[in-house]
Every structure is written in structure tokens, then in C-alpha cells.
Design a protein around this nucleic acid. Structure first.
Lengths: 137, 137
DNA sequence: ATTAAATACTACCTTGTTGTAGTATTTTAC
DNA sequence: GTAAAATACTACAACAAGGTAGTATTTAAT
């Protein structure tokens, strides 16, 4: 159960871009829209394109656009790309080895909630966020 | 949604002490039992006693013991004491102001899960963990 | 070709968290 | 009273995450 600030930034970026799935977004414009530090945002955009969520187009009228359909990108995929695989699934007591047959004292207490978190993150795609935004209008 | 390593250490300490609620635990023994760095553990014990969860007894045969009934200490209280009030309730996109009438795009998607997390942490007391441990035997 | 506007790469600075060290203080067995 | 065994206090070291800077590269309008 941990979500780095950088993962939250990634949510902001991709969630915002999902508003118009096929548009081209420049780093400069994104910076103004979602309040992520500009240089850090640029680095993160490069990172996200390396992970295959978006693709970058260089040159005078370049920018970033989705590399695949937004319905195929889940929040869990984004977190795992940024924070590392299994980052959400970590033991709540911080023990390295905590599996069902050698579990920590709080394992069962936490298990159900952890599954709920993972379920939400893995079942919510960027397209779902997109719809949500439209509803908000 | 954030749980610092220090909070996890606090869970380990208090969860372990809850096994025998009225016993006196020395820092040295706790260190051996729960693998928290000894000096850091001592500092954290002082901190936890200042927060009123436990009380310290100085002197030759001193140590730490609970300052109140373990059934009155919830996991949420522990997290909020260590990581700060509202640390769990933070916006998933990292925005400072994100309330129901000015919510972020992901607010509704995340709300239910967040409530589940808070409910679990606030309904689980150290005594519950204690019982869990007994069942494990 | 030149230039403007974008991304890419690498290195470094800053900040917060985690962990360590040294020393002081308290208490009790002897 | 003295020493042992515990906690308390303060400062700092180490590390990781977040953020910045400078420069290089790519592309297309002109």
C-alpha cells in the first residue's frame, strides 16, 4: 500500500490526456493544465512513453499522444510501471517474506482491504476516468 | 493512501506487545523479536509513549508496557500519530484541495476504496490483532 | 539552410525519511 | 554509594525521492 508522488503525477497526466484520447499534448500545455513541475513532467512523459502508454512525436509540432486505446490502460498498470511491480501488494508490516503459509500477524486483517485496492486499480481504466470527467461537466 | 516505514514499524512493535498486554517489554528484547533497527526502535518507543499508547519505565528493570487497554488502540490512531492526521485520506492525485464539491477526476472512482481502507484501520484494534495471533498458533 | 519548438539525455541539487552515534539521565540491585 | 541496565535527548550521517539545469537532438515551417 504505497503510491509515490510520481505515480500520482502519472495519474494526473494520463487522466488528463484521456479527456481527448486522440489529441496531441505538448509538455508545456500539460504543465499548465495539471500543475506538475515542468522539467519533472517532461522526464516523466519520456518515462511513460518508454513504458508504452503514450508515444512521443518530436519536432516543431510534436508532443505526446496515446500509444494504445485508453480502455486497455489500467491504473494498476500505471502504478506498477512507476513504483515497481508488486508495490501495492507489499506486506503491511513491511516484512519481506509474508505469504499465506508464513504470514505476518496482520496478514488476514489486511488481506481483504488489499484485494479491494488492487481490484479497484486493476478494474479502472483511463477510459473509465474519462467518462467520469464527462459526467462531472 | 500512504503508510510510512515507520508506521509499519509501529504496527510491528505494538502488535507484538499486544500478545501479552500487561507484560513489560525491553527495547533490547523487542529488537530481537521484530527486527527493527535497535536505535531507531528506541526512538520510536519514546515517540509512542509520548503519544500515550505505551508508558516507559526507566531504571534497571525498566521497559515499556501499555498505557491503556489494547482494545482502545486502533490501527488508524497509530498511523495518524506517526504519519500525521489525514495522511490516509489524502487525494489520490495528490491535489491539496479535493473535496466533494471541488473533487479531482478520480475522486469518485477512489472514494469507496478509500473508505474501505479507513474503515479497516479504524475498526481494527490491537486486541483484534492479538486474537488473530492466538488463532494462528 | 535556418530557426523555432518540441523531446532526450545526463548530471546534479534539494528535501524528507530512515538510521546511527554519543552522551545524559533515571532507577534499582547490590 | 556504586555500578548496571534501562530510557531520553540531540545532532548528524546515509539514502531515496523529488525536482532543476544545461545541453543535445529531432523535426518541420519558413
Amino acid at each position: 500500500m504505497n503510491l509515490s508522488k510520481t505515480s500520482k503525477y502519472a495519474f494526473r497526466i494520463l487522466g488528463h490526456m484521456a479527456k481527448d484520447e486522440h489529441a496531441l499534448y505538448s509538455a508545456q500545455q500539460l504543465h499548465k493544465d495539471i500543475y506538475v513541475p515542468e522539467r519533472y513532467l517532461r522526464r516523466l512523459l519520456t518515462d511513460l512513453s518508454k513504458h508504452g502508454f503514450i508515444k512521443s512525436i518530436q519536432g516543431r509540432h510534436g508532443g505526446f499522444t496515446f500509444a494504445c486505446d485508453t480502455s486497455t490502460i489500467t491504473l494498476l498498470q500505471i502504478v506498477e510501471a512507476i513504483d515497481g511491480q508488486g508495490s501495492i501488494n507489499e506486506c503491511i508490516l513491511g516484512y519481506d517474506i509474508c505469504v499465506f503459509n508464513h504470514s505476518c500477524p496482520m496478514h488476514d486483517v489486511w488481506e481483504e482491504t488489499k484485494l479491494k485496492i488492487i481490484e479497484t486499480l486493476s478494474k479502472t481504466s483511463l477510459k473509465d476516468i474519462h467518462y467520469k470527467i464527462l459526467e462531472d461537466l
